[in-house]
Design a protein around this nucleic acid. Structure first.
Lengths: 193, 193
DNA sequence: ATACTTTCTTAACCTAGGTTAAGCACAAAA
DNA sequence: TTTTGTGCTTAACCTAGGTTAAGAAAGTAT
């Protein structure tokens, strides 16, 4: 599994033995689109690394409306962080949007690797730092930008996702209804011509 | 400085020598309310731990409106995470809201401590994990809850802050204007009587 | 005490985005 | 091939929250 190793070695270098030890703790799974890997109420046991395909995490509020927390494509990690670290029932769904090959790292193996290969604790610290910064930026964007501006940023940040996923998912990610998204999109097109 | 040590030892235990080494890397500062510790365009050099007082981080968008990213009271850390890890110019103000005593840990000292006391890298990993979870929850709340519901959650999560800071700051944190916040508050009062 | 600044409130009016509902265009089953 | 979904669009109407403006209240500095 070269992709996951490469992605780690962008931040910390591993010896061949460490790579082997690390690899021995991983599990690979193939999943079809529409598979639900995790549902609210369940305890998240794994960090999921995406070898191929696309996943999303989302929740559903009282009004039966979905809100996307995160998309994950090739090379990204996904999970229910709250449930994973607290080992309490989570609030998120994790769903496969496009047929996917995943690398699973269980909570226990991850904790053990922190001890056996401290460099991996550093790697995950850096990974989480970056994730935090991205979430902070998105939070501020939701407070201060219009739906149109958020959509523009989304297009720039995830240009490939536009093709891969239904646009109602993007609407949900930027925080508007599919109906409004459609209206907005056609308005933006008109204004650009 | 027992508070910062105690807060670390909730997650990892330090030997007396480690505590001393750690303490030797810290700097203590007193600051008056209204002091701006960091402005957009500057590179954030420190993680700030609050011994007493209250701080906030916020940005200002084109329309000259402020948005609060975070409050920090006694026992909390604050900084411009983006700028701190990238060492590029940041986007945030960090301001003292109530006279404060701060413990400063410089970026370089923090990096060095990760090497000298790996347990501290673990501590900060855990700290950042918790912060990420909190930001994820706030993001989802902003997508799915009404202003009134967000205010309720804020009151429960930060009951002490209500007394300490001007309510326009709370309005900014939950993502509404001070005028609307005032209207909403009196409406909520009426409905509860 | 007085003046000056900042915060809070209220009210009239406005708008970005939500809701409901209907029709259309696909794709997947059957 | 019909049916049954699932997603997209459009349009009429609605509402949470924003804007502008002005006065009251409460700090803060002189």
């Amino acid at each position: 599994m070269p992709l996951i190793i490469d992605s780690i070695e962008k931040h910390v270098l591993l010896t061949p033995e460490e790579k082997e030890l690390f690899a021995s703790k991983l599990e690979i799974q193939q999943h079809k689109a529409k598979t639900i890997l995790l549902s609210p109420g369940e305890i998240c046991q794994y960090s999921y690394f995406v070898n191929s395909g696309v996943l999303r995490s989302f929740n559903i509020n009282d009004n039966i409306v979905e809100h996307v927390l995160q998309f994950a494509c090739k090379g990204w990690w996904i999970g229910d962080m709250y449930s994973l670290i607290s080992q309490k029932p989570g609030n998120l769904f994790i769903e496969v949007l496009e047929d996917a090959e995943l690398v699973l790292l269980s909570k226990e193996n991850q904790e053990q690797l922190y001890i056996e290969i401290p460099k991996l604790e550093r790697f995950f610290r850096i990974l989480i730092e970056n994730s935090l910064v991205a979430h902070q930026e998105r939070l501020m964007d939701n407070l201060s930008l219009s739906a149109e501006e958020r959509f523009d940023k989304f297009c720039k940040r995830y240009p490939d996702l536009m093709q891969k996923i239904p646009q109602k998912q993007i609407a949900s990610y930027i925080g508007v209804t599919p109906e409004f998204f459609s209206k907005m999109k056609s308005r933006m097109l008109k204004n650009k011509i």
